[in-house]
């Protein structure tokens, strides 16, 4: 199958597909980071995670509209405002959901799964009622358009680069938050031993609420970034939810590095395969490989060695 391409063409193809894979990787990482916090740290299955992401995307869409109409002079920088608003909106909704629902279900993870699925249905219909069933897209500011020629045959789109830088930045923030801050230490203490953490004076309920909220907030930022590379519809989140869960499980639920590594593996193999096979077969093979590896190594790529 490689015969019809020359060597340099093949390199360019691989580079371009690799870059497309990197964009997919960014989306997966951004979504998976929030999930890694919620699922990996708290052990809560949030099936509505995709809908939190879409909330961020719609907030970005609204902000873009707002800037377009009222502040066209500042349009170039709207994205940063939108990102902050997306985080806040998803965070607020996350805290609310935790308070109404999740906190009653901590001991029943399988039931959280069903309840959050119900939530995702409600949110989807809500989006459909408010924004309509059609997909919406944002207008990109000028500096994000176009592409950057790397060599004669290889070009990389600028919005892709931006999303990747953003991913790096957010991953770093999450890392610092979880592993280098006092708050992160408290979260991990609550996860490892809830009664003991409470006994040393950590307010476990508050920690739970904000952990869930921040996980959802990161999802909102992911949605914000998602608008840069694709359009948003009420059910866009659901397309990614299974992939994201696989990413988190494949990486080893409690390891942040594992999450990133597995997102990289999955996205790269999918986009590379996509060129040579049809898109659906590429996805089938990737998912089957992941499931196969998970059967051989159920604890994921990077499992923490902890005693239970």
């Amino acid at each position: 199958m490689f015969d019809e391409y020359t060597m340099s063409e093949l390199t360019s193809i691989l580079a371009m597909q690799g870059f497309a894979g990197l964009i997919l990787f960014s989306v997966l990482v951004l979504m998976a980071l929030g999930l890694a916090i919620i699922f990996g740290q708290m052990g809560v299955i949030n099936m509505a995670h995709g809908e939190f992401m879409i909330l961020g995307a719609y907030v970005t869409y609204l902000t873009a509209k707002l800037f377009e109409t009222y502040l066209p002079s500042l349009f170039d920088g709207y994205f940063f405002v939108a990102m902050g608003l997306a985080f806040l909106a998803s965070f607020a909704l996350g805290v609310l959901v935790e308070w109404c629902m999740i906190r009653f279900l901590f001991k029943r993870p399988l039931d959280t799964l069903l309840a959050t699925w119900g939530l995702s249905l409600i949110l989807q219909q809500l989006y459909r009622t408010i924004f309509g069933a059609r997909e919406v897209g944002v207008t990109l500011p000028d500096w994000m358009m176009g592409s950057y020629p790397l060599s004669e045959t290889i070009e990389v789109p600028i919005n892709g680069i931006f999303v990747m830088v953003l991913t790096l930045f957010i991953s770093l923030c999450v890392y610092l938050l979880m592993f280098r801050s006092r708050w992160g230490k408290q979260v991990r203490a609550v996860v490892l031993n809830r009664p003991m953490a409470g006994a040393v004076g950590i307010n476990t309920e508050k920690i739970d609420r904000y952990t869930f909220g921040i996980g959802c907030g990161v999802a909102g930022v992911a949605g914000s970034a998602f608008t840069m590379i694709g359009s948003t519809g009420p059910t866009s989140g659901q397309l990614y939810i299974v992939d994201t869960f696989l990413v988190v499980v494949f990486g080893g639920a409690q390891s942040l590095l594992g999450t990133i590594a597995s997102a990289f593996t999955i996205s790269q193999s999918q986009s590379t395969l996509e060129f040579f096979l049809s898109g659906s077969m590429a996805k089938v093979i990737t998912l089957l490989l992941v499931v196969g590896i998970l059967m051989l190594r159920p604890q994921g790529l990077f499992a923490l060695k902890i005693r239970h």
Binding site: L110, L113, S278, S280, V284, L287, V291, M295, P298
Partner: peptide, 25 residues
């Protein structure tokens, strides 16, 4: 291999997704 609970749920979900994609593809 003693995989169970939530992990099993996620993997069966992925398998259902795989079969759907395969049938459509």
């Amino acid at each position: 291999r003693r995989v169970g609970g939530v992990y099993f749920a996620i993997i069966t979900q992925a398998l259902a997704a795989i079969l759907t994609i395969l049938i459509i593809g």
